[in-house]
Amino acid sequence: MLEIKNLSKMYDGGVQALNGVSFNVKQGEFLAVIGLSGSGKSTLLRCINRLIEPTGGQIIWDGQDVTAASQEEMRLIRRKIGMVFQHFNLVSRSKVITNVLSGRLGYVNPLLSSLNRFSKSDVDMALDQLDRVGIKNQAYKRADELSGGQQQRVGIARAMMQTPAMILADEPVASLDPVLAHSIMQYLEKINKEDGVTVLCSLHFLDLVHRYADRAVALNAGKLMFDGSPKEINDEKFREIYGKDAERVG
């Protein structure tokens, strides 16, 4: 469903963040992206919905060449790809419900939505999504009044408003307590298993990878070092991914 072919990204400063990365993602898969920080995980995920313009290679999604899509086509592609961020990226001064509703922006009339007018069905849907992540009662609070874990749930609800076929999650639990991390990961797992949404999730901790991912790809300095089941990551592979001096924890 998603094919990454020889993808490269060179930043303006000359940093080669991705270097000829290729892999495929199957429909309904839970794929973990691992690697040290700075290895290019965020860059990879952002290239897929072209928040960052790749400098080489191709991304084929549902048979469509994402890298060649025009701006308008890109909007239509993006609205089917939800995104969840490490720092949640909520609009902190807006209400929770507004943040969730903004997930519908790709579908609604630009003019009407700019006046903050959403249809009843969209509002109901937003409340349902909040209910699903267990914070329906917080809907009319300001987003910055919520705790970190709650904010990330708002982030997930926002992504789900897009009725996505795929979710890109960029270290969704890296700024949360380990306990909360599992609850967030379980929501993603639920979305993946129950709704059949493909999930691409970059993760820091290998135990999370083992627990939730069907498959893992590993990056080191922008190069793909590993592509396979998390079980296959033995000590040798581990050192290839994380460098010689790395010590396995957890």
Binding site: R78, F85, N89
Partner: peptide
């Protein structure tokens, strides 16, 4: 820039 990026990722146009 985070919220900006997030809204863009939903498929919102520039005005939105």
């Amino acid at each position: 820039s985070g919220p900006l990026e997030a809204i863009k990722a939903t498929g919102a146009n520039r005005l939105q």
